[in-house]
Amino acid sequence: MSVLAQREAAALREKWLGEKWLGEEWLGRILSTRPADRPAAEAAITGLYGLIGLAPPRFHWVPSPLTALTTLPPGLRPRSAEDASRVSDWPLTRRFQAVVTGLCLDLDPRVRRAHRGLDDWIRRDVHVSLERSMDGAFVRPVLAAHAPHLPRPAWYRTQSAFWVAHYDALRRAGAVFTAEQARQLDLWATAAASCGPWWPRQDVCVVSERPTVLRTEVWGDDGEVRPHCPDGPAVRYADGWEVHAWHGTLVPPWVITDPSVERIEREENVEVRRCAIERIGWDAYIERAGLRPVASAPDPGNPGHFLRLYDLRRETRVLLAVNGSVERDGTRRRYGLTVPGYFRDPIAAAGWTYGLSAEQYSLLVRRT
């Protein structure tokens, strides 16, 4: 890299460091539990309707996404083409998605030509991080209300703040947009920052309030925010709809409020069962469930810690281990892995979970 290129890269980096707080500003908007700014939201959505040549809609406000997805606004007839599980295929959502695609296609070449290095930093520090946080704090809880087994609908990505924050950060860091590009970006930014999700129809737009409770934790090296609350709902709306979550995994309320060995035994979902055991604590669960110890051994993949093998049920055993990586709070997470009942050697069982033999696992420097 030439001296001039190095100086330009350093200048871009310095410029971005001065604007990096924008990611936190947008994250604060995503996680806000304040009442929606209804006048601002309605004005912005009205402007977005204008972009696709439609008159202002009638606005129907609801207290939660669950209400929006399970009830129809007064005076509106049900239409098979507007089933909630196919929201990305609604006539208007497809038109709005085309508007966003066109805006991004206009902005990207301009940005990449003039601010390539800056765009890369912002994409990593703002776009990707906010997308993951938005997915955990909003999209997955909304899907849990009506379509937990469906792919993430594109419409929720269209109205999400992460792509808006990306271009907003570029603009504040020096990227120049046309007046029309800036106007469109401002409309999407105001809508994303003023209310909960919204569902557009020809004459009426259903808009959700924000949650009244949103409890999260920061996880991972990139600072992803995910829903988590150890003693109550992680998400709650004014109409009483609640979502419980354990370290980002959505779980039934009993996992948080009343976990028990009996309920864990009846639970078929492996992830829910794991969360319930972690909620109780592995030591307490082992004692209450009366799990019989089979064997223990020093963990060659995690020096200073032990692997412990217990009888579980139905010809299976559980391997209790300690995470090789330190959590953000400085602790090491304990976790259990189910293994076939024929294992008697904890090291062989640990190797099996990695697809390795006992000898191969013993040669690991440190697992994660």
Rank of each mutant, 00 (worst) to 15 (best):
V139M: 12
R140T: 03
L118W: 14
R124N: 00
I122K: 05
R140A: 02
R124S: 03
G102N: 13
D108Y: 00
V128S: 06
T101D: 06
P109N: 11
D108N: 08
D120K: 14
W121M: 15
R123V: 04
D120N: 11
P141H: 05
P141T: 11
R140P: 01
H127N: 12
G117P: 12
M134I: 05
V128H: 06
F138M: 11
D125W: 09
D119Y: 11
V139Y: 14
V139G: 00
F138D: 00
D125S: 11
L103C: 01
G102M: 08
S133W: 03
T101Q: 11
V126G: 06
P109I: 10
R140N: 01
G117R: 15
L130T: 04
F138V: 13
R123S: 12
L107I: 12
I122W: 07
C104I: 15
R140M: 02
R112M: 14
V139H: 15
H115E: 12
D120L: 15
G136M: 10
A137D: 04
P109T: 08
D135H: 07
L107V: 08
P109H: 05
S133T: 11
D120I: 14
D120G: 09
H115Y: 09
A137S: 12
F138A: 07
A114H: 09
D108L: 15
R123D: 10
S129P: 06
L130E: 09
G102F: 03
R113Q: 10
I122D: 07
